[in-house]
Simulated scan of single mutants.
Amino acid sequence: MRQSVEIQFPTGAGSYAVTRWPAPEAAVQAPPVIAAHGITANGLAWAPLAEALPETDFIAPDLRGRGRSREVGGPYSMAAHADDLVRTLDHLGVERATLLGHSMGGWVVAAAAVRHPERFGGAVLVDGGLGFQLPEGTDLDQLLDAVLGPAMAKLRTVFASREEFLAPWRNHPSLVDVYSPAVEAYQERDIIGTEPELRSSCVLDAIRDDAADELQNPDVVGAIHRLPMPAVFLHAERGLLNEPVGLYSPEAVAAAKLADAGVDVRFVPGTNHYSILLGDRGIAAVAEAVRALR
């Protein structure tokens, strides 16, 4: 098991937390990877993938408003997260890295690539970063509840115990087949407070503001078509709750014509929105895409 270190540095109103898995000194040094997690996740969501890339200096922040970066404060937007990634590289003395993002992190990665092309050599977007056509008058809170389900419910719930917090994730339809000690550690990082009053670390305003930005800001929605570097877009076969159709149907991906924008599109069968990051088949596909950009 790879050893990680946690780094914190002041940003905004609080400290920005980063988990780093340094590459072994004996390894052939590949470019570092900096990874942006999903909308209600944290940096430990990347632990299984870091294990699959042992030659890589792997850097995974808790994005502002989540995990141990919850006190950083706003503004919350893809641009703010993108700039935080560059601040992280500056703090660590890293000149150039490969971008990697899952779910909302895909929009963060696209924004970072467009805003700071000189700092990144390639981008991998994992089941995120491609915009949706929303019906006029869509209520954002209702949409988040419908799409994210348990991930949104936990933000409004007070849990009496650690076990009560973790139980829904152990039995989550998209996680039940890939649940592991690493997945549990990622979920535990989200717990704040003391029993019998435990909560999610995610700041609800951060979730709302980031969702609005990634879904409604034209500059963010269109960023994937303006990537100034080699890029790979991976999409899962199944959805957030393991529904038969994924977050991105093959038809929607084809209609986006990402290949015309120079993006390498890869379908990952046998995965859902979470297992594409946390299950063996998904991890192998993401690791292959990262290595392809070197």
Results as ranks from 00 to 15, higher is better:
Q3N: 14
S4G: 13
V5S: 15
V5A: 15
Q8T: 15
F9T: 07
T11C: 14
G12Y: 06
A13M: 13
G14Q: 06
S15E: 15
W21D: 07
A23S: 13
A27T: 04
P32R: 00
I34D: 01
A36F: 10
H37I: 11
L44C: 13
L44S: 13
P48E: 02
L49F: 01
A50R: 02
P54T: 02
A60V: 05
P61S: 07
D62Q: 09
L63I: 09
G74S: 03
P75V: 10
A80R: 02
A82C: 04
A82T: 01
D90R: 11
H91N: 15
L92N: 11
R96K: 15
T98Q: 13
T98G: 12
H102F: 10
G105F: 01
G105R: 00
G106N: 07
G106P: 06
A111D: 03
A112P: 10
A113L: 12
V114E: 02
H116G: 10
H116C: 10
E118W: 12
G121P: 09
G121V: 13
G122T: 01
G122L: 04
V126T: 03
P135I: 04
T138K: 05
L140C: 11
Q142W: 07
L144W: 00
L144D: 00
L144K: 00
L148Y: 06
A151T: 11
A153S: 14
A153K: 12
K154L: 15
L155E: 03
F159I: 07
S161V: 10
F165A: 03
L166F: 01
H172K: 02
S174A: 15
L175S: 04
V176P: 07
D177M: 14
V178K: 03
V183G: 02
A185I: 12
R189T: 04
G193I: 06
P196T: 07
E197H: 14
C202Q: 12
V203T: 06
R208E: 03
D209L: 14
A211H: 00
D213F: 00
D219W: 13
H225G: 13
P228Y: 08
M229L: 14
A231I: 11
V232N: 03
F233N: 00
A236V: 12
E237Q: 14
E237V: 10
E237T: 09
E243D: 14
E243Q: 14
L247D: 11
S249R: 06
D260V: 12
V265T: 10
F267Q: 07
V268E: 05
G270P: 07
Y274A: 14
S275R: 08
S275M: 10
S275I: 07
L277Q: 12
L278S: 03
I283S: 04
I283C: 05
V286T: 05
A287N: 01
A289Q: 09
A292M: 12
R294A: 15
